[in-house]
Computed example of a mutant assay.
Amino acid sequence: MHAPEPDTPHCALATVVATLRAAGCVFAEDEARLLVDAATHPGELARMVEHRTSGVPLEHVLGWVEFSGVRMEVDAGVFVPRRRSELLVRQAVALLHPGDVVVDLCCGSGAVGVAVAAASTGVELHAADVDTAAVRCARRNVESVGGHVHEGDLFDALPATLRGRVDVVVTNVPYVPSEAIALMPPEARDHEPQIALDGGPDGLDFQRAVAAEAPRWLRPGGHLLVETSAHQAATTADIVTRAGLLARIVRSGELDATAVVGTWRVDY
Protein backbone atom coordinates (compact mmCIF):
# COMPACT_ATOMS: atom_id res chain seq x y z
CA MET A 1 0.00 0.00 0.00
CA HIS A 2 1.58 3.28 -1.12
CA ALA A 3 0.90 6.43 0.87
CA PRO A 4 0.57 9.83 -0.83
CA GLU A 5 3.19 12.46 -0.16
CA PRO A 6 1.31 15.24 1.68
CA ASP A 7 2.37 18.88 1.54
CA THR A 8 1.83 20.09 5.12
CA PRO A 9 2.41 18.57 8.55
CA HIS A 10 -1.32 18.70 9.35
CA CYS A 11 -2.20 17.07 6.05
CA ALA A 12 0.58 14.54 6.58
CA LEU A 13 -0.72 13.49 9.98
CA ALA A 14 -4.32 13.12 8.79
CA THR A 15 -3.25 11.16 5.73
CA VAL A 16 -0.96 8.83 7.69
CA VAL A 17 -3.62 8.19 10.33
CA ALA A 18 -6.13 7.23 7.63
CA THR A 19 -3.61 4.99 5.87
CA LEU A 20 -2.55 3.20 9.05
CA ARG A 21 -6.14 2.78 10.20
CA ALA A 22 -7.09 1.26 6.85
CA ALA A 23 -4.19 -1.19 7.24
CA GLY A 24 -5.54 -2.32 10.61
CA CYS A 25 -3.13 -0.51 12.95
CA VAL A 26 -4.90 -0.33 16.30
CA PHE A 27 -2.98 2.70 17.55
CA ALA A 28 -3.01 4.58 14.24
CA GLU A 29 -3.03 8.08 15.75
CA ASP A 30 -0.09 7.46 18.08
CA GLU A 31 1.93 5.69 15.39
CA ALA A 32 1.20 8.41 12.85
CA ARG A 33 2.56 11.11 15.15
CA LEU A 34 5.77 9.17 15.68
CA LEU A 35 6.24 8.57 11.95
CA VAL A 36 5.52 12.18 11.00
CA ASP A 37 7.94 13.45 13.66
CA ALA A 38 10.66 11.01 12.56
CA ALA A 39 10.50 11.68 8.81
CA THR A 40 12.78 14.37 7.45
CA HIS A 41 10.92 14.81 4.13
CA PRO A 42 7.69 13.61 2.48
CA GLY A 43 9.39 10.85 0.50
CA GLU A 44 10.88 9.34 3.64
CA LEU A 45 7.50 9.53 5.37
CA ALA A 46 5.83 7.73 2.47
CA ARG A 47 8.44 4.93 2.62
CA MET A 48 8.07 4.59 6.38
CA VAL A 49 4.30 4.37 6.13
CA GLU A 50 4.59 1.79 3.37
CA HIS A 51 6.89 -0.35 5.50
CA ARG A 52 4.56 -0.08 8.49
CA THR A 53 1.45 -0.99 6.51
CA SER A 54 3.28 -4.01 5.07
CA GLY A 55 3.65 -5.37 8.61
CA VAL A 56 7.11 -4.19 9.62
CA PRO A 57 7.13 -3.47 13.39
CA LEU A 58 6.86 0.22 14.18
CA GLU A 59 10.07 0.02 16.21
CA HIS A 60 11.99 -1.30 13.21
CA VAL A 61 10.53 1.43 11.00
CA LEU A 62 11.57 4.12 13.47
CA GLY A 63 14.84 2.45 14.42
CA TRP A 64 14.21 2.90 18.14
CA VAL A 65 11.89 2.02 21.02
CA GLU A 66 11.16 3.71 24.33
CA PHE A 67 11.77 1.15 27.07
CA SER A 68 11.68 1.85 30.79
CA GLY A 69 12.06 5.56 30.11
CA VAL A 70 15.14 5.14 27.89
CA ARG A 71 15.28 5.34 24.10
CA MET A 72 16.96 2.23 22.67
CA GLU A 73 18.11 1.69 19.11
CA VAL A 74 16.49 -1.39 17.52
CA ASP A 75 17.76 -2.55 14.14
CA ALA A 76 15.67 -4.47 11.63
CA GLY A 77 15.82 -8.18 12.44
CA VAL A 78 16.53 -7.61 16.14
CA PHE A 79 14.08 -8.62 18.88
CA VAL A 80 11.92 -5.69 19.99
CA PRO A 81 11.85 -5.35 23.80
CA ARG A 82 8.35 -5.61 25.26
CA ARG A 83 7.05 -3.43 28.07
CA ARG A 84 6.51 -6.50 30.26
CA SER A 85 10.29 -6.90 30.47
CA GLU A 86 10.34 -3.75 32.59
CA LEU A 87 9.49 -6.10 35.47
CA LEU A 88 13.01 -7.53 35.17
CA VAL A 89 14.40 -4.01 35.33
CA ARG A 90 12.43 -3.10 38.46
CA GLN A 91 13.39 -6.31 40.24
CA ALA A 92 17.07 -5.98 39.34
CA VAL A 93 17.32 -2.34 40.41
CA ALA A 94 15.81 -3.19 43.79
CA LEU A 95 18.55 -5.79 44.39
CA LEU A 96 21.60 -3.83 43.25
CA HIS A 97 24.20 -1.75 45.09
CA PRO A 98 26.94 0.55 43.74
CA GLY A 99 29.77 -1.45 42.20
CA ASP A 100 27.69 -4.58 41.61
CA VAL A 101 28.14 -6.68 38.47
CA VAL A 102 25.08 -7.11 36.21
CA VAL A 103 24.80 -9.50 33.27
CA ASP A 104 22.05 -9.18 30.65
CA LEU A 105 21.97 -12.63 29.04
CA CYS A 106 20.30 -13.09 25.62
CA CYS A 107 20.35 -9.33 25.56
CA GLY A 108 18.95 -8.63 22.08
CA SER A 109 19.22 -4.85 21.71
CA GLY A 110 20.59 -4.64 25.26
CA ALA A 111 17.48 -2.82 26.45
CA VAL A 112 17.05 -4.56 29.82
CA GLY A 113 20.67 -4.15 30.84
CA VAL A 114 20.82 -0.52 29.73
CA ALA A 115 17.61 0.30 31.61
CA VAL A 116 19.00 -1.37 34.75
CA ALA A 117 22.25 0.59 34.47
CA ALA A 118 20.38 3.83 33.86
CA ALA A 119 18.32 3.34 37.03
CA SER A 120 21.23 2.18 39.21
CA THR A 121 24.40 3.74 40.57
CA GLY A 122 27.83 2.64 39.43
CA VAL A 123 27.07 -0.90 38.30
CA GLU A 124 29.35 -2.88 36.01
CA LEU A 125 27.22 -4.00 33.05
CA HIS A 126 27.91 -6.92 30.73
CA ALA A 127 25.51 -8.05 27.98
CA ALA A 128 25.69 -11.09 25.72
CA ASP A 129 23.88 -12.58 22.77
CA VAL A 130 24.57 -15.29 20.21
CA ASP A 131 23.07 -13.36 17.30
CA THR A 132 25.52 -11.13 15.42
CA ALA A 133 22.88 -8.58 14.42
CA ALA A 134 21.72 -8.28 18.03
CA VAL A 135 25.28 -7.87 19.26
CA ARG A 136 25.94 -5.13 16.72
CA CYS A 137 22.82 -3.27 17.86
CA ALA A 138 23.48 -3.89 21.56
CA ARG A 139 26.98 -2.45 21.32
CA ARG A 140 25.58 0.97 20.41
CA ASN A 141 23.11 0.90 23.30
CA VAL A 142 25.20 -0.78 25.99
CA GLU A 143 28.49 0.96 25.32
CA SER A 144 26.72 4.32 25.53
CA VAL A 145 26.25 3.67 29.27
CA GLY A 146 29.76 2.29 29.77
CA GLY A 147 28.83 -1.38 29.50
CA HIS A 148 30.45 -4.27 27.65
CA VAL A 149 28.91 -6.55 25.00
CA HIS A 150 30.03 -10.12 24.27
CA GLU A 151 29.05 -12.43 21.44
CA GLY A 152 28.45 -16.10 22.14
CA ASP A 153 26.09 -18.74 23.48
CA LEU A 154 24.66 -17.90 26.91
CA PHE A 155 27.33 -17.88 29.66
CA ASP A 156 29.99 -19.10 27.22
CA ALA A 157 30.08 -15.56 25.82
CA LEU A 158 31.27 -14.03 29.10
CA PRO A 159 34.90 -13.50 30.13
CA ALA A 160 36.07 -16.07 32.66
CA THR A 161 36.99 -13.25 35.06
CA LEU A 162 33.27 -12.83 35.83
CA ARG A 163 32.89 -16.39 37.10
CA GLY A 164 31.69 -16.36 40.72
CA ARG A 165 31.38 -12.58 40.99
CA VAL A 166 28.11 -11.67 39.23
CA ASP A 167 25.55 -10.04 41.52
CA VAL A 168 22.54 -10.12 39.20
CA VAL A 169 21.82 -11.98 35.97
CA VAL A 170 18.76 -10.73 34.08
CA THR A 171 17.58 -12.85 31.19
CA ASN A 172 14.73 -12.85 28.75
CA VAL A 173 15.66 -16.07 26.98
CA PRO A 174 13.19 -17.38 24.35
CA TYR A 175 10.26 -19.04 26.11
CA VAL A 176 7.66 -19.54 23.38
CA PRO A 177 6.99 -23.26 22.70
CA SER A 178 8.07 -24.18 19.17
CA GLU A 179 4.57 -25.07 17.99
CA ALA A 180 3.22 -21.73 19.26
CA ILE A 181 5.49 -19.62 17.04
CA ALA A 182 2.98 -19.86 14.20
CA LEU A 183 0.31 -18.35 16.47
CA MET A 184 2.32 -15.24 17.25
CA PRO A 185 1.47 -11.88 15.60
CA PRO A 186 3.00 -11.52 12.12
CA GLU A 187 5.13 -8.60 13.33
CA ALA A 188 6.99 -10.98 15.62
CA ARG A 189 7.10 -14.22 13.67
CA ASP A 190 7.93 -12.58 10.32
CA HIS A 191 10.30 -9.80 11.40
CA GLU A 192 12.09 -10.99 14.53
CA PRO A 193 14.68 -13.79 14.47
CA GLN A 194 13.25 -17.19 15.40
CA ILE A 195 16.28 -17.75 17.60
CA ALA A 196 14.94 -14.96 19.83
CA LEU A 197 11.48 -16.54 20.09
CA ASP A 198 11.68 -20.35 20.01
CA GLY A 199 12.20 -21.89 23.43
CA GLY A 200 11.93 -25.52 22.34
CA PRO A 201 9.08 -28.03 22.72
CA ASP A 202 7.76 -26.64 26.02
CA GLY A 203 9.40 -23.22 25.70
CA LEU A 204 11.76 -23.79 28.61
CA ASP A 205 14.91 -25.27 27.06
CA PHE A 206 16.94 -22.08 27.45
CA GLN A 207 15.69 -21.47 30.97
CA ARG A 208 17.00 -24.92 31.94
CA ALA A 209 20.38 -24.18 30.38
CA VAL A 210 20.72 -20.79 32.07
CA ALA A 211 19.62 -22.03 35.50
CA ALA A 212 22.02 -24.98 35.37
CA GLU A 213 25.01 -22.69 34.72
CA ALA A 214 24.02 -19.72 36.89
CA PRO A 215 25.53 -20.99 40.18
CA ARG A 216 28.99 -21.06 38.58
CA TRP A 217 28.74 -17.35 37.76
CA LEU A 218 26.81 -15.85 40.65
CA ARG A 219 28.50 -14.74 43.83
CA PRO A 220 27.04 -16.16 47.05
CA GLY A 221 23.79 -14.28 47.57
CA GLY A 222 23.61 -13.31 43.90
CA HIS A 223 20.39 -13.42 41.92
CA LEU A 224 19.08 -14.87 38.67
CA LEU A 225 16.04 -13.07 37.21
CA VAL A 226 14.16 -14.94 34.48
CA GLU A 227 11.21 -13.60 32.50
CA THR A 228 8.51 -16.21 31.93
CA SER A 229 4.78 -16.48 31.31
CA ALA A 230 2.04 -16.82 33.91
CA HIS A 231 1.25 -20.40 32.92
CA GLN A 232 4.94 -21.40 32.82
CA ALA A 233 5.91 -19.68 36.08
CA ALA A 234 5.55 -22.70 38.38
CA THR A 235 7.70 -24.83 36.07
CA THR A 236 10.27 -22.05 35.71
CA ALA A 237 10.46 -21.76 39.49
CA ASP A 238 10.98 -25.52 39.75
CA ILE A 239 13.78 -25.35 37.17
CA VAL A 240 15.50 -22.62 39.18
CA THR A 241 15.03 -24.52 42.42
CA ARG A 242 16.46 -27.72 40.96
CA ALA A 243 19.56 -25.75 39.97
CA GLY A 244 20.14 -25.03 43.66
CA LEU A 245 18.70 -21.53 43.95
CA LEU A 246 15.92 -20.29 46.20
CA ALA A 247 13.11 -19.32 43.84
CA ARG A 248 10.18 -16.96 44.11
CA ILE A 249 7.63 -15.86 41.52
CA VAL A 250 6.94 -12.15 41.02
CA ARG A 251 4.09 -10.69 39.00
CA SER A 252 2.94 -7.28 37.81
CA GLY A 253 -0.67 -6.73 36.80
CA GLU A 254 0.23 -3.29 35.46
CA LEU A 255 2.77 -4.76 33.04
CA ASP A 256 0.98 -8.11 32.58
CA ALA A 257 4.36 -9.63 33.39
CA THR A 258 5.75 -12.59 35.30
CA ALA A 259 9.30 -13.42 36.37
CA VAL A 260 11.13 -15.81 38.64
CA VAL A 261 13.83 -14.55 40.98
CA GLY A 262 16.38 -17.13 42.07
CA THR A 263 18.91 -16.49 44.85
CA TRP A 264 22.16 -18.42 45.05
CA ARG A 265 22.67 -19.44 48.66
CA VAL A 266 25.92 -21.13 49.57
CA ASP A 267 26.45 -22.42 53.09
CA TYR A 268 29.96 -22.26 54.45
Results as ranks from 00 to 15, higher is better:
232 Q>G: 01
111 A>D: 13
131 D>Y: 13
76 A>T: 10
253 G>W: 07
112 V>R: 01
186 P>Q: 10
11 C>P: 09
23 A>N: 02
242 R>C: 11
138 A>L: 07
75 D>Q: 07
219 R>M: 15
175 Y>S: 05
229 S>W: 00
77 G>F: 00
52 R>T: 09
263 T>W: 09
141 N>I: 06
125 L>Y: 05
183 L>N: 08
101 V>A: 13
41 H>R: 15
221 G>K: 09
5 E>R: 15
233 A>P: 02
14 A>E: 12
257 A>V: 11
243 A>F: 11
133 A>G: 02
146 G>L: 04
105 L>Q: 05
11 C>V: 12
266 V>R: 14
259 A>M: 14
182 A>R: 14
1 M>N: 10
231 H>A: 05
36 V>Y: 04
195 I>T: 11
74 V>A: 09
152 G>I: 10
119 A>S: 15
64 W>F: 15
268 Y>Q: 11
227 E>H: 09
89 V>C: 05
85 S>G: 04
18 A>T: 12
113 G>D: 06
48 M>I: 08
35 L>Q: 02
120 S>Q: 06
66 E>H: 11
177 P>N: 10
247 A>V: 03
61 V>W: 04
245 L>A: 02
50 E>L: 13
232 Q>I: 06
223 H>W: 03
209 A>G: 08
9 P>L: 09
99 G>S: 08
19 T>I: 07
114 V>H: 07
126 H>N: 13
58 L>R: 02
154 L>W: 02
113 G>N: 07
10 H>I: 12
233 A>K: 06
174 P>K: 00
58 L>H: 03
209 A>T: 11
48 M>H: 01
6 P>T: 02
122 G>H: 10
234 A>D: 15
116 V>Y: 03
13 L>C: 09
122 G>R: 13
183 L>S: 14
266 V>H: 10
227 E>P: 03
87 L>T: 05
259 A>L: 15
263 T>V: 14
39 A>P: 04
38 A>R: 13
207 Q>D: 04
196 A>L: 07
225 L>T: 00
34 L>N: 01
56 V>H: 02
248 R>K: 08
6 P>S: 01
